[in-house]
Structures are given as C-alpha cells and as structure tokens.
Nucleic acid binder design. Structure first.
Lengths: 241, 241
DNA sequence: TTGAGTTTCTGAACACTGTTCACCAATAAC
DNA sequence: GTTATTGGTGAACAGTGTTCAGAAACTCAA
C-alpha cells in the first residue's frame, strides 16, 4: 500500500514524463497518418483502422475529428493544393506558365502513391480551392481567350493531368517489382508483345511498337500537354460570340 | 414414409417442370446481372453478393466462372466495346470521324451508371481491345500525323472522354434528386454561389459564373473535344523527326 | 438403367471494412 | 474542488471479398 503523504523515492518513480503528454489528435495529424498509410499500403489498403493504428489510437477516435472516410479523403485532396502557388498572369508567357502549372501538378500527383485516384474522385470546387481556380482563370483571360474557352480550359487541363498520372500508376501497378530494372523489363515485354502481333491484322501497332513504348512518361506528358496548349492557343483572339 | 417403388400419383406430383430447367450460370449472365446491379445501386453498391442475389444464386457460385471481382470488372469493361465499330479511315474527314468516335464513346460511358469509374480504372490494352486500338491508330495515320503524335493521340482522346464523363457523374452524384427539375435547381444554386463570391477577390469567377454553368454538358464536351482536335491537327504534315 | 466421374452450386466460415454507441478518463470552467 | 465538456476506448453491427468441404446436378460409358 502506498503511503499517501510520503514522497516516492526516485528509483521507484518511473523516469520523468512516463506517459507522454498525450499530444491530442487533430485533423492535421490524421491527414498526415492517412498519407503515411496511403504511401505504404496504396489506395485499397487505406482503411480507417490502418490510419488509427498509425496514430496508436482506437478507430472510433478518428470519428471525433472527421465525419466520414469521405471527409478524410476530401481533406487529403485539399492538401494537394497546399503551397501550390500560381504566378501572376503574364500575357506574354501564358503558355509557359500553363506548362509549369501542369508540370507542377503532375509532380504533386506523383508525390504520393495512388494520389491520382483520389484526385480523380473530387471536383476542385470546394471553397478552399476557389482562389486557385480564380488564378487559373486569370491566366486564360490574360491569354486573350474567349469566355467559353476560359470556362472549360482549366477543366480540360486538370482532367489531362489527373488522367495521365492515373494511367501512369495503373501501369506501375501491373509491374509491381518496385525498383531496379523493373521499368526496363516492362518496356521490353510490352514492346516485344506489340511487335509479335500478326502484322497483317495489326500493321500500325507493330509499326509503332517502339515509339509507343520507348518514349519516357515525361516525354509523353509534355507532348500531350503541347497538343492541348496548341488547341487552346488556336482560340486566342476569337470573339466571345 | 414414401414407398420407394410406388409411382407417385399425379395429384401428388407437383405440376410438370416444377423446378425450372436450371439454365446454368455463365460469364455472360453474370456480367448482365452485374450491369443490372450497377445501374440500380451504383459503383459502391456493386458487390458480389448483390450480383449473386440478382441471379438467385449463392455468392460462391460466381467464383466458379469468375476468378475475382477484378475479373468481373474487367469483363464489364470489355463489354463497353462490344459492337463499337470504327469506320475505315478516310483522310479527308478524319476530324469528323474522330468526333463521332468520341461522341459514341461518351454515349456508351453514359449508358450505365458509374461506367466512367470502371473505364478509368482500366487500360485499353487487353487482347480483345487491340483491334479497336489498331483501327484508331489507322485513323491518325491516315490523317498524316507524325508517329509520335499517333502514338499518344488515342490515349489523349480516351482520357478526355473518360475524365469528362466521370466529372459529369460526380456532379450528378452531388445532386441525386433524380429526375424532374433537379438539373435546373443545380444550375441555379451553383451559379448563384459563384455570383455571390466577393468580386474583388474572385473577379473572374463572378464574371464567368453564367457561362461556366449555363452551357450544357453536350456543348462543353464538344468544345473540349474541338480544342484537342485542333491541337492534334496542328501536327498534320510535321515530319517524324 | 445403372453407376462413376466431373462440373456446378450451397452454406458456413474467415478476415476484413466503415460506422455507431455506451462508457471512461482527462481536461477546462466556475 | 466540483462540475461540464471534450476526446478517447472497446465492443458491436452490418456489410465486404474470398475460400472450402460437401451436396447436388449433370455427362457419359458400361
């Protein structure tokens, strides 16, 4: 039995701050943990229980701070845009500015596993993202595009980024031998497969086997981006009708 | 107790063909049922158990014909292309041909609920789909495009179709009051929201509120498609380098 | 017709999932 | 120092994909 008024001697007392000061949960910490789980387990492995385990906490504790798994995913999506600065629109260099915007977007989407899947499932019209949308619109306006094009060009570009990165990650998932010469092997296999098709029935696939596979994803992204930008540029100066 | 050797009298025997002749399961029937469930319950409600229930069959019976839920989804994806005929390439009218291709694709994606979600998760390079890819490539070749553009233009177009329809359905899900004046109400609400933003911080959003929302999805799809086609067309005649 | 063999389907189980709810502990307010 | 309020617990519920021993139905040869 402990004597209530006696001081506990140092060797009895566990080292100071035995129980860590219980830094409380918060949306921020939950999102951090969710990203950790996402990177480790992928989108399908991202469960509330895994997130809770990452924080050494019971599942139900999460629901104090977050209504849903949907809300958690929305918070993760929002973070995608943190510190995503768009420059002031420069009418002289709007194409290069948009190129940079798209490159930066792709880089962000690639920075977390399966991020494109999450991005694809959300519309960038939540209040937190509106300043972003506004600045993007400003760049199209500065370029001298007609209203109707301004109104959809941002969507077009975003869809391209999301879709491209999503497809990148689909291929990656098919060849999960992470690291090493996996991409090399993948290239060879796919190229060999295309090249081995009957040339009478698939002349173009056989012919294009090398160029379809040889080019890096970076190159393909840039080319697709350039196609879209040329298409948009073709509207510069057209009246609003 | 039944007497084993006595014939059962007619009034005892249930009416002829009591038990229906047990049309056996097949991949086709399973995919049919899966589509029925998809249209009724949406992608999140599409479970193996629901599909089994649709067929009045135990869940585990499905696994005799189908390895995975993944395989089932792949079969559903494949069916998207059934009877999806591409015309012979006509160098004079390749743009109109591609427009039709995209329109038809969107129509198919819209013909089943959440179909775009399934389509987005698959790469159109399964053996069954290669003839399709081949014909699409042929159209780009006929248009006189350089190899590198041919190699990615199909992807670009498919990504656009999938992404556009997916976004359409995301909006639809946000306003699930099916039928009636729901789209009207949606338009008004969104437009009102954009218009109500502080004009000093969001001048472009406020300015463009009407044109961003007023236009029908059909119109927006056509415009985005036209942008991409113009971009592609800008490469006609360029050398393969 | 009988019987063997193969295919197809069943029911139960396993290990998960998201979400809720009564309860308990720690903190903040008076 | 006692009371609220908030944050966290553990168990439970209904649902998920998938597997597996065994029963039922079909096929085909004797």
């Amino acid at each position: 039995m402990t004597q209530p008024d006696m001081p506990t001697p140092p060797w009895e007392r566990p080292p100071k701050r035995r129980r860590p000061p219980r830094v409380p949960l918060s949306r921020e910490r939950i999102v951090d943990a969710a990203y950790a789980v996402l990177d480790r387990e992928g989108y399908d492995g991202l469960s509330m229980r895994q997130v809770a385990a990452e924080l050494h906490v019971a599942v139900s504790a999460l629901y104090v701070h977050v209504r849903d798994k949907d809300e958690l995913l929305r918070l993760m999506y929002n973070r995608l845009f943190d510190g995503y600065e768009l420059p002031d629109p420069d009418p002289e260099h709007w194409r290069e500015q948009l190129r940079n915007f798209a490159r930066q977007g792709r880089k962000r989407l690639l920075s977390h596993r399966d991020m494109a899947k999450i991005s694809m499932a959300h519309i960038p019209f939540t209040p937190e993202l509106l300043p972003h949308v506004e600045r993007l619109l400003a760049m199209f306006v500065a370029a001298g595009l007609p209203k109707k094009v301004v109104a959809i060009a941002g969507d077009l570009l975003s869809t391209y980024m999301d879709g491209f990165v999503l497809e990148e990650s689909l291929w990656r998932d098919r060849y999960p031998e992470s690291g090493g010469a996996a991409p090399e092997k993948m290239r060879e296999e796919i190229q060999g497969y295309f090249a081995s098709l009957p040339p009478d029935r698939f002349p173009n696939l056989v012919e294009l086997a090398d160029v379809m596979v040889d080019e890096s994803n970076d190159y393909r992204f840039e080319l697709g981006l350039e196609i879209i930008l040329r298409g948009i540029a073709s509207y510069v100066g057209e009246p609003d009708d």
